[in-house]
């Protein structure tokens, strides 16, 4: 379970203070598929960064599986990221010098698994995303959809509790986007909790719970409702 209570995030420069998240409270239960929508600059990515322990929150409380992780040090945060969270990025974020196999291997090496266990997980995940036949291909030799599938395999290889997806279909055409969303839905059905940030309402509809972020605040409910509210405001 993921639980944020009254979380705020403030970016400070010498002259400006930007409140990216304000009193942000949220609970995501195990097995949920949550979409997070909102206009540009609303705080979606900041939320994702905080949720994924990529950034530290300014105040508030954040728990994963009942453990307060807002005060962890860098090493402990890295470990939580590695063991409990899988990331899927808009621009895939594969390492161009590494082939498909080695890309999926990256988080597993940080986890310290032996070679046999890593191979089992890597090939299992590549099988799951339909790329078991291309472990030696490099990212540049794959289509966008295939690259995102590799990124999904990489995110799944550590068998995380949460999958955080940041505009996972943003760089894909419709056909490839559908295929990736089908895959995410399948992964969710298998028990993995997914939180997906997107600005596309049609994609958000694929989730079974919708959240809307505006001006650093979070609102629960169908995105259409919030977009309509925002438009009428």
């Amino acid at each position: 379970m993921l639980k944020m209570t009254n979380v705020s995030k403030i970016y400070r420069t010498d002259t400006v203070e930007t409140h990216a998240l304000r009193g942000f409270s949220l609970t995501v239960e195990e097995g949920e598929f949550v979409s997070v929508t909102g206009p540009s600059g609303s705080g979606k990515t900041t939320f994702l960064n905080i949720a994924g322990l990529l950034e530290e929150l300014t105040s508030g409380n954040y728990e994963i599986d009942g453990r307060d992780i807002s005060s962890l040090n860098d090493k402990e945060r890295s470990r939580v990221r590695n063991e409990k969270i899988g990331f899927i990025f808009q621009s895939f974020n594969l390492i161009p010098e590494l082939n498909v196999y080695d890309n999926v291997d990256v988080p597993l090496r940080y986890r310290g698994f032996d070679a046999k266990e890593r191979e089992r997980r890597i090939m299992g995940c590549l099988e799951r995303v339909g790329l078991a036949s291309r472990p030696t291909h490099f990212p540049a030799q794959l289509s966008g959809g295939q690259q995102q599938r590799v990124a999904i395999a990489r995110a799944l290889a550590g068998e995380p509790r949460f999958l955080l997806a940041d505009e996972p279909t943003g760089n894909l055409d419709t056909h490839m986007a559908d295929s990736v969303l089908d895959l995410l839905a399948e992964i969710n059905e298998a028990g993995t909790t997914i939180i997906m940030v997107t600005h596309e309402l049609t994609l958000a509809d694929r989730a079974n719970r919708n959240l809307f972020v505006r001006d650093g605040h979070i609102h629960d409910g169908p995105p259409e409702l919030h977009f309509a509210t925002a438009a009428n405001a």
Partner: peptide, 16 residues
């Protein structure tokens, strides 16, 4: 830079 950030996001510690 980006690749290092990705590695960090995937669980690499600073010493790693």
């Amino acid at each position: 830079t980006r690749q290092i950030g990705i590695r960090r996001a995937l669980g690499a510690t600073k010493p790693a």
